[in-house]
Write a protein that binds this DNA or RNA. Structure first.
Lengths: 159, 159
DNA sequence: GATCGAAGTCACAGTGGTGTAGTTCCGTTG
DNA sequence: CAACGGAACTACACCACTGTGACTTCGATC
């Protein structure tokens, strides 16, 4: 099964399409260190970046936060935390951002608890939605590639 | 009792101090229409703006959202809604921002419901905290003025 | 009507990009 | 194997937004 998943990931252009940002924006984010293309960073003009499925998940979460009106600077702060926790069962977790603190929260009750102590604003990002959006976008754009999906998602790269 | 509350409100400088922003920032927000000093807009160099207690509440909410990393542009969108609902018992309400939509939500259960349908990010601002912070800041900075507080808050202006 | 505090104005800085024009790598062709 | 062509990274200039600091100008008050 594992050999069904090409290991060469996604190109910048394709990643941008899937995530729903411009190439220039993805380039900017990558150059400024917001994301690191797991399967290969750029080494100069003509080299190619390679993003994996997890990168896509991260990028989609970033875009969702930006669309919600959160400043990129703030997303950056939050993001080191988020990227460590995308491994957990993403569909069961809500990301809660309280000021500069972030936590992964599993149940609604926990969120209510946080609300009670709540200083400032809670930003709640249901990660299940992020994954859903991402997967359907991949299938949408490249249905023919979507033949052997691993548990982590479609994750089928271009070939 | 009503006569105990000076009707001339708060000057720009004082408002900035209480809300916890620079004078220049408050000036910028006011010039660009984010807030309108209820008790008197500027009519040219040398004129004086006058903010009332409700303005302070609005401004404090704005600052809280900004501190939470939300873009001013987004705060502007949300704000027309918020300013209409600051009348309700502020200490009982949470402001929930979902995308560009805003709602006032009373109980935690309602928030959980919103989370379930949740597209994108929920930004939750407990307004009780906003009022508390504001009031204690007023008393902090100007204890001698705090003699006749109306139900809406300290609301005692300079004189 | 002088003084002084606050509003106005202008220029500039940092963030978060975007458009365009190279530049380089890499696979293909001759 | 060398030249070619295209994809995609890079560099540079430029934009809007969100301020800030410095200086000017005006209105209220004494």
């Amino acid at each position: 099964m594992a050999t069904d998943i090409p290991a060469d990931g996604y190109s910048s252009k394709r990643t941008a399409e899937i995530v729903g940002v411009t190439y220039r924006q993805l380039d900017y984010w990558t150059r400024t260190g917001l994301v690191k293309p797991t399967l290969g960073a750029a080494t100069g003009s003509g080299s190619r970046r390679r993003y994996d499925y997890r990168n896509l998940l991260e990028l989609r979460a970033v875009k969702t936060l930006l669309d919600a009106g959160i400043r990129l600077e703030h997303v950056r702060e939050v993001f080191s935390y988020l990227s460590e926790h995308l491994d957990e069962d993403v569909t069961q977790v809500n990301l809660v951002i309280s000021g500069t603190r972030s936590v992964a929260v599993r149940s609604g009750d926990e969120i209510i608890d946080l609300l009670r102590q709540g200083q400032g604003v809670l930003n709640i990002l249901p990660l299940a939605g992020v994954k859903e959006d991402l997967d359907s976008k991949i299938i949408d754009l490249y249905p023919e590639d979507h033949l052997a999906a691993p548990e982590t998602g479609p994750a089928v790269a271009e070939g």
